[in-house]
């Protein structure tokens, strides 16, 4: 078949291997690596007339951004949004997953009822909440106003707007978390559960001392995935529900990037924002790898 067989793999034709890899390599080269490198290049230029002209400005885009109050505000809003989404969707997801893990009747019905939000499109989640929490016709608005006695008007109230967007995002994200947490929980050996029962370990102690340590690698993974979702997936909610308002209260980084690039045609500045987003993702991934390395001995 070929010249050298110094391998215990079935096929050793380099040409064959690269033929198989070619489609993938072309796609990632053209649509992933090339634009990423271009983003970095663009971020050092100032563009005029919707990219018709450009001028090298070094790090000026970055200094402009980091010193701009609007960008700082956007950064703060994004971190707040991300933090809330991560904490809420993970806690609810963990609660649901633990309950599901415990039941043994009608498992598959429960399962479907608990994971379906995984299929929920962001745009659908956004528009449903835009309606149900609508200040004038929303069912939820009426319910909240009558029970809590607050005046709901998130079309003008910034914190309320951010809260509604967050709730929609959490709703969408729960299914994803439930699935991965269930996978992690099902990896916990049944013998441990039985040992806990024999030892009479209480529910909370069992959760804190047995389950949480054993599924901690998955928790770390989910923290990162949820943060990335919050940073990038928040776009549709904002675009459909608030357009960044009121007065920038929901102006997530990704939405600001979109506006700067495709409405104001400020491609250089937008690219610099992409670079900053990349740095954030990279840092998060790095942290995840480091933390999960340290946790590796749990083996779950």
């Amino acid at each position: 078949m070929s010249a050298s067989i110094d391998t215990n793999l079935p096929y050793d034709s380099s040409l064959g291997a690269y033929l198989l890899l070619a489609p993938t390599l072309v796609v990632i080269g053209l649509f992933l690596y090339y634009p990423t490198v271009q983003t970095l290049r663009f971020s050092f230029f100032r563009t005029f007339l919707f990219g018709q002209r450009s001028q090298f400005v070094g790090l000026q885009n970055f200094t402009t951004l980091l010193t701009s109050a609007a960008y700082q505000h956007s950064l703060a809003v994004t971190f707040l949004f991300a933090g809330a989404v991560v904490v809420a969707s993970l806690s609810i997801g963990l609660f649901v997953a633990l309950l599901l893990h415990e039941v043994s009747v009608a498992e598959s019905a429960y399962l479907v009822a608990a994971i379906w939000p995984y299929a929920l499109p962001t745009a659908v989640a956004g528009i449903v909440f835009l309606f149900l929490a609508n200040p004038s016709v929303g069912v939820y608005t009426v319910a909240v106003e009558s029970t809590l006695g607050v005046d709901v008007d998130w079309f003008t109230d910034g914190p309320q707007a951010l809260a509604v967007v967050t709730v929609a995002a959490v709703w969408k994200q729960i299914g994803f978390n439930v699935i991965f947490l269930l996978a992690a929980l099902s990896g916990v050996p049944e013998s441990l559960e039985e040992a806990c029962r024999l030892d009479g370990v209480g529910r909370l102690a069992k959760l804190r001392r047995v389950y949480l340590p054993l599924i901690s690698p998955t928790l770390v993974f989910l923290v990162v995935m949820n943060t990335i979702f919050a940073f990038f997936g928040g776009f549709a909610f904002v675009d459909l529900m608030t357009q960044g308002g009121p007065s920038g209260a929901t102006n997530l980084l990704i939405y600001k990037l979109f506006k700067d690039a495709f409405e104001y045609g400020n491609l250089g500045l937008a690219s610099a924002q992409s670079v900053i987003l990349f740095v954030i993702v990279a840092a998060l991934t790095y942290v995840q790898l480091r933390v999960s390395d340290e946790r590796a001995h749990y083996g779950a």
Binding site: P10, S14, I28, Y33, P35, F232, L257, L277, F278, V281
Partner: peptide, 28 residues
């Protein structure tokens, strides 16, 4: 199933694209 040069590098190259979601390269 194949033995070929730069195998690990190629795998890393594919895996590393996880770091580039659309927003990171949207303008270009």
């Amino acid at each position: 199933y194949y033995e070929f040069p730069y195998k690990n590098a190629v795998f890393f190259l594919v895996l590393f694209t996880l770091m580039f979601p659309v927003p990171v390269r949207i303008v270009p």
